[in-house]
Design a protein around this nucleic acid. Structure first.
Lengths: 203, 203
DNA sequence: CTTCGCGTATGACATTTGTCATGCTGACAA
DNA sequence: TTGTCAGCATGACAAATGTCATACGCGAAG
């Protein structure tokens, strides 16, 4: 019997090791490699692509969503399962757009991980049911690319001038995008706008 | 040979199960129980106190720090190891005050968990070395109560006027406190100030 | 081919935010 | 008692932020 080969990507060493131990207790699954960030994961895959890639989203250098997109491009036969803390509709949508076959929350019982890997390996999709339901009713991201780009930086504390310089725009333009974003999100300043957008998974 | 009995407390099911799998691969350690929050953990301990309790900090209903304090009170023979994502000096201090013998970060390699449990079981203390060093050199919170109060609200997106109304101050006063905080923290606006203060555990 | 809508871009103007000089109070040491 | 020092409070002023009217190009719908 061929075991399912899984590559694990997760930036918290303790959790990475623990998940590996968990999966190795499954008779039909083997952890073929582990990585602490997306770059390392891609290097490992270049040598030997696994059948299933399990990755966290929020990681330094390269997010799991970016990784998923790149994997879909370069290793189309590898299935991707996103494993994250965050039940954000925006993340789910972007994960599916990026070609992920699975989206699982760390809140769920441990047994669901192996089961999800098996299903995805068989060609099925696996999406956390509560989140899927929420994503169905949830408002779509109303922001344009530019607005997202600017809101992101403003939310990190950059001044209008900083943002304008970095993106090669006039300050007035930057203020205008911020104003648009604030209006679209129905809030009253850039701080609330950034917080809301982040909580929805739009940034 | 007597195995070391460990009770695991962690609110994310996936991580809880994975940590249990990890520890069960150690020949001298056995996971005697698991709980998703502090209340359940105390119930389990009432029946059979483990030798070592490993707990996360941020959990619903009862934090790991509260749990540690209660365990010290009711089950003084059980050693406590805090296992958390957050490298905040303030947390470390409170953990040690609450009677924890260990403070470990989820960033660290998986092998360190078992080792920490062994050390703590032998009566030693285990504290993440980087964090201990940081806690030693770390700047103390330079903010006054008022400044904290105001920075907190500003960081949540409240306008100066909102804050002034809620705290019964004039707008000028609120701006002044914000200005003071910004200067003390060496940043250039309220957003950065709130972010920095939060990251240090001062809010 | 037009018209429309959308994303992008700008600057003038109003509002909010940040800085600074100043004053009041109470605790504590000289 | 007096000096002084920290925390709290204020308003005038300067700077950054938010709003609005406006304009241009481009692709889709008519």
């Amino acid at each position: 019997m061929m075991k399912i080969e899984v590559l694990l990507v997760e930036d918290q060493g303790m959790v990475l090791g623990a998940l590996a131990a968990l999966l190795n207790t499954e008779p039909d699954i083997t952890v073929s490699g582990t990585a602490g960030n997306g770059r390392v994961a891609l290097d490992l895959m270049a040598k030997k692509p696994p059948q299933v890639l399990v990755t966290d989203i929020e990681m330094p250098q390269m997010t799991g969503l970016e990784l998923a997109a790149e994997v879909k491009e370069r290793f189309p036969k590898t299935r991707v399962v996103i494993l994250t803390t965050f039940a954000r509709p925006g993340y789910l949508r972007r994960a599916l757009d990026a070609g992920a076959q699975g989206y699982l929350l760390k809140d769920r019982p441990a047994a669901e991980l192996a089961e999800a890997i098996r299903r995805v390996h068989r060609g099925l999709r696996v999406v956390d049911p509560d989140l899927a339901a929420e994503a169905w009713t949830a408002d779509p991201d109303p922001l344009t690319d530019r607005e997202r780009q600017i809101l992101q930086r403003a939310g990190d504390g950059m001044s209008t001038a900083d943002v304008a310089r970095e993106l090669g725009l006039s300050e007035g333009t930057v203020r205008n995008y911020l104003s648009e974003s604030i209006a679209k999100l129905g809030v009253s300043n850039r701080i609330e706008a950034a917080r809301l957008a982040r909580s929805k998974g739009w940034l």
